[in-house]
Design a protein around this nucleic acid. Structure first.
Length: 362
DNA sequence: TACATTTGGATTGT
DNA sequence: TCATGAATCCAAATGTA
């Protein structure tokens, strides 16, 4: 039987949660911001509600710019841990609507795929009923809305859910998939961002239809084998990837801005320590050890550099993390004269803790 | 030489 | 001074059998 996949996308999630928690926000423009450490409104917009969007406020926009677009908007700082809790509740509802526990894939804090092939017996009418039921259940239990897309694979489902927003539902049967994508600008395709869009544009490709018709060998020569083939397939509406539970992320990182661009060691290392505290907290919560440590510096000219090290064996030791991260950060200070703007630290190559130290630790 | 791992930059999307 | 932050992907460099 041909697959039937649902993609659920929570509408303006962070801002919607804030509205739910504080009814006085209803009817107002709400902007949830990631504030950096730099002054009153340094930082970028994480999410805004649709009223704010009407004023031209968008994700990733500098908060300052957002404020100039609508000085009366309500600006709130992100409360990520709280949103994670709400997300967990929502995901539970969604998972319970998939064919099975395993036919579910959370792809971000506010999006998930559900395989419902069995539940609807391959029938799209039934699938739509399931989609509507999910929307109702989320609205009733969590008092926030979502947009739903239904299609023969994850790509089409994902594209469908973003077609009508907010609080929408879009069903694209297998026979409609190609026609649905064809007229779209390539930038709209899930996985194509600014850089790829520009490269494609240079090749004279601006719509999905043109991309689908393009010679795959030429795409490969520009984008490499994997991406070249993916572009061709995606533009044709083909996506065979299964809905599959995501294994926990295989890296844990934190990054933040300095109060101002600087090469002051106290400032840099004290921020680094804070970031490592956060990383270690996650490491402990996840009960993992790590074998690689990476530090990132974003310079005042926005150039980004990273250094990483792989240790001889996995550890979950704060001091070892600190020592390695500090050494690499010092190298950056030696190598460059440019001021630092932001710094980050990350661990990866994660291993489940066995609960006891391995012999290698001694 | 072929394969595996490490490293660092590039990309996405918020 | 307008400019967040997390994660993944990918290719080149390096290591190993």
């Amino acid at each position: 039987m041909e697959r039937v996949i649902i993609h659920v996308d929570m509408d303006y999630f962070y801002a919607a949660i804030e509205e739910r928690e504080d009814p006085s926000l209803k009817g107002k423009a709400v902007v949830v911001c990631m504030y950096s450490n730099r002054g009153e409104s340094g930082g970028a917009v994480s999410t805004s509600n649709y009223i704010a969007r009407e004023a031209g406020i968008r994700s990733a926009m500098p908060c300052k710019l957002a404020r100039s677009k609508d000085p009366d908007a309500v600006f709130l700082p992100v409360r990520k841990p709280f949103y994670e809790d709400v997300s967990a509740n929502v995901m539970e509802i969604l998972r319970s609507n998939a064919d099975s526990e395993e036919a579910f894939e959370k792809i971000s804090i506010d999006e998930a795929f559900l395989d419902i092939t069995e539940s609807c017996k391959g029938d799209y009418e039934t699938a739509k009923e399931i989609g509507l039921r999910i929307k109702e259940e989320v609205k009733e239990k969590e008092r926030i809305t979502c947009s739903v897309g239904i299609g023969p694979n994850k790509l089409i489902a994902k594209m469908a859910s973003s077609f009508r927003k907010p609080d929408g539902i879009t069903v694209i049967g297998p026979e409609d998939a190609e026609g649905f994508l064809k007229p779209m600008p390539v930038k709209k395709l899930w996985g194509i961002g600014k850089v790829t869009e520009d490269k494609l544009s240079e090749m004279g490709i601006s719509t999905v239809e043109e991309l689908a018709a393009f010679d795959v060998m030429e795409l490969i020569s520009t984008f490499g084998k994997n991406k070249g083939m993916w572009l061709k397939q995606a533009a044709s509406g083909i996506d065979d990837s299964p809905v599959k539970e995501r294994t926990a992320t295989d890296q844990i990182g934190r990054m933040a801005s300095l109060k101002h661009d600087s090469r002051n060691e106290n400032m840099i290392f004290s921020l680094l320590e804070e970031l490592m505290d956060d990383v270690m907290e996650k490491v402990r919560t996840r009960k993992v050890s790590f074998r690689s440590v990476t530090v990132t510096v974003i310079f005042s000219n926005f150039k980004t550099s990273t250094k990483s090290r792989t240790l001889n064996h996995a550890v979950n030791d704060r001091d070892i993390l600190s020592q390695n991260a500090r050494e690499m950060m010092s190298q950056f200070l030696e190598e460059s004269e440019i001021n630092f703007r932001r710094i980050g630290v990350r661990v990866d190559n994660l291993h489940e803790n066995t609960g006891q130290k391995s012999l290698f630790d001694f």
